[in-house]
Every structure is written in structure tokens, then in C-alpha cells.
Design a protein around this nucleic acid. Structure first.
Lengths: 193, 193
DNA sequence: AAGTTTATTGACTCGTCAATCAACAAAAAA
DNA sequence: TTTTTTGTTGATTGACGAGTCAATAAACTT
């Protein structure tokens, strides 16, 4: 009994299921059937809406990136002053939404995907550029010319913390990670002053 | 015309070929045939010596880890004083041997592997513990109680720099990466003083 | 010389999985 | 009401790839 207008609903369900399954399995070795099953439909339907598995992965990636971008923007509008803006970015980066197991596991696998799928690489590059420019903008008033270098290292730090989150076992602790990133930043700033 | 004592030779060739192929393809989606071909033998022989693809991956991982460990130890014996010891560890971490494309690409994929293969996780944990304890030992004389926290963040920084190396395109630049890590460390140390 | 161990591969099995297709159902348009 | 569009799936195809096996050969042992 087909209701109309299912496309967006199905697609969203598939995207979420993709992320969950990648997180669960811990790699991109996930079958379309697994994903479709978790999303409550047949694998044929998944192909119907996305055409290929790769498209599914890319859609999932865009979803994570969009989520992250939205959260950063949201935190940024409510932020006061340069210090506040940086804190906002870090808070968003390590928020429960973005720093949850599934999402972080998905990140790791998207990094891998970007090695062989150009579009994935592109998406990742876009995100990195945006993060960098946000950081530089926030840091410049505090550190002038050194903003670029500091943003670079803070970016690496953030990625590193994501990575370690994946590797470690146990519940995620965004607060602790954000703490570390902030300490790093403060140390860098203090050094220049 | 079978010469005897081929086992170690074949195994080494396979391990190296595994790393190269993983780096080339950019993922663990590498067939035993590809690896065997690059190593100059049939896939049947690869199975003969390693039993399974997973064993091949683990052997490759051990190889990379051993290489890294040896380089750190080597740099460490020639190091003078705490500062020198830290520099030694960083120099080894970002040396041309360890920071080359193939090796870094392999790392990324080993991180993924550790998500689903317990032995891979174990190996990675061993490496992380060793790195941490080396760092703490070198940092303690300079920062006392804060050594643990600093080692933690420096470790994350190193991993993050590896990750970024994979993502970026272009030739690897270990010197620049080591520079960033060192700046981070100095900033942290200065903060405490 | 006969027997054993090591090296080596081509051919094969068996399973898995992405992608396609034919078919059916219901809503919307004509 | 016929036709078209949208939703849906079970069954099938076709490829690919891990792991096994039988067979062959050279060395080493007794």
C-alpha cells in the first residue's frame, strides 16, 4: 500500500541506517542488505533511491558534515567575543551529537573513503577549509599573524582527539576532549603574549 | 626449482607488498591475488604461508609497529637530556621511513582494522602505551605532575598530524609536522613554568 | 634408492554481494 | 476509466574473491 512522498523519508532512514551500520561493523564492509534491513526496507528499494552503495555512503557523509556544520553555526551565533567563538567551535565539535560513537566511527571510515573516492575527498576538503577559516577568524584577534599556524595545530589536535576517541574503548567523553583542545589553545596563546 | 628456506623471504615480500597495496588502493579492499602478484608469487603460496588474509594484515601491522619502535629506540639512545629525548621521539615519528605515504596510509587502515579485529586493537594499544610511557618519562623532568596530561595531548597531536598527512595531497613533509608537534609541546611547557 | 619435507601453482569450490528485472499495487493524471 | 507515475519486493544475474586441493618438483634424510 504505497503512500506517496516516501522518497525523502526512505532516504533519511537509509542515511541514518548507513551511519549506524558502519559504526556497528567498524568498517565500510557493510552490505546494502544490512543497511536496508535496518532501515526497514528491501535492498532493491535502497538501490532504487540511491542507485549505488557509493551514493549511499556519500549521502551519509554529507549528512554528518551538514549536522556538524549546523551545530557549529548554531553555537557561533550565540558566542560573545573571540574567546567565546573558539569555545563555541570546540563545544560543537565535541558535543554529544557529533562526538557520539557512531558519528566518530563514521568519520574514521569517511577518511578512508576519501582515499579512493574523489567526491568524498572533496567533501572532506570543504569541511576542513570551513573549520580552518572559522578558527582563523576567531583566533586572529587574539594572536594576529600567528592565527594561521595556531588554527593548523588546533585542527590537527581536534582530528587527533576524534581518532583517539575511536580507538579507545568505553563511553565517549566529549568534555574531556574539549578540555584538552582548549588547554592546547590557551598554551599556544599564552606563548605568544 | 624450489630452493629451501624460502619462508622468511616470501613472508617479508608479502608483508611489504601488503603495505604497498593498501597504500595504493587506499583501503583494506585489497585482494590476496593483488598482494601476491606484487610480491611475485601465486595467491596460493600467500595462503600457504599466512593461512589467511587477516594474518597477512596483522603481520604487516606488526612490521610497521616494529619499524617504528626500533626507530624510536634508536633515536632515544643517542639523545641527551629530557628535551633531547622528546625531540628524538618526534624525529622518529616523523622520519622519512615512518612518515612516508605508504606507511601513513597503512596506519589509517590499521586504525580501521582495529575496530573489528581484536588482535589489531591489542597491537595498537601496545603501541600507544609504549609511546605514552616514553613521552611521560621524557616530559616528567620538565613538567612534573603535568607530564601525564601533556603526553596525552601530544599523543593526540601526533595522531592528528598523521591523519592530516593522509588526507592532504602532495608530498609528505615530516619536518613541518614535527615542527608543529614541537611548538605544541613548548607551548604546554611554557604554560606551566 | 626410497621416503620425507619444503616449495609452488593452476584449477576449482563455495559463498557473498552489488546491481538489475519483472511483476504487482496504489495513487494521480488524463 | 484508462494511463501514467510512484512505491515496493522476491528472484535472478554476474562478478569477484577467499580459501582448498591435487599435482609437480626439487632438495634433504635415512
Amino acid at each position: 500500500m504505497p503512500k506517496l512522498g516516501m522518497e525523502p523519508i526512505r532516504k533519511e532512514a537509509l542515511v541514518k541506517a548507513t551511519i549506524v551500520e558502519i559504526g556497528r561493523v567498524g568498517s565500510l564492509d557493510v552490505t546494502v542488505s544490512q543497511i536496508a534491513k535496518r532501515a526497514g526496507m528491501s535492498s532493491a528499494l535502497a538501490h532504487h533511491y540511491f542507485g549505488s552503495k557509493e551514493e549511499m555512503f556519500l549521502a551519509a557523509m554529507r549528512h554528518i558534515l551538514t549536522l556538524y556544520g549546523a551545530e557549529v553555526r548554531g553555537a557561533l551565533v550565540a558566542a560573545e567575543g573571540p574567546e567565546g567563538r573558539i569555545r563555541a567551535i570546540l563545544r560543537a565539535s565535541f558535543s554529544p551529537t557529533n562526538f557520539r560513537r557512531e558519528a566518530v566511527g563514521a568519520w574514521l571510515n569517511f577518511w578512508v573513503l576519501s582515499q579512493s573516492v574523489p567526491e568524498a575527498k572533496r567533501l572532506l576538503a570543504v569541511y576542513q577549509r570551513r573549520l580552518r577559516s572559522n578558527l582563523v577568524a576567531a583566533i586572529r584577534p587574539l594572536a594576529g599573524d600567528r592565527a594561521g599556524a595556531i588554527a593548523e595545530s588546533l585542527g590537527a589536535m581536534i582530528d587527533g582527539l576524534y581518532l583517539r576517541e575511536v580507538l579507545k574503548s568505553g563511553a565517549p567523553d566529549g568534555a574531556a576532549a574539549a578540555e584538552l583542545a582548549l588547554r592546547h589553545l590557551e598554551a599556544e596563546l599564552a606563548r605568544g603574549a
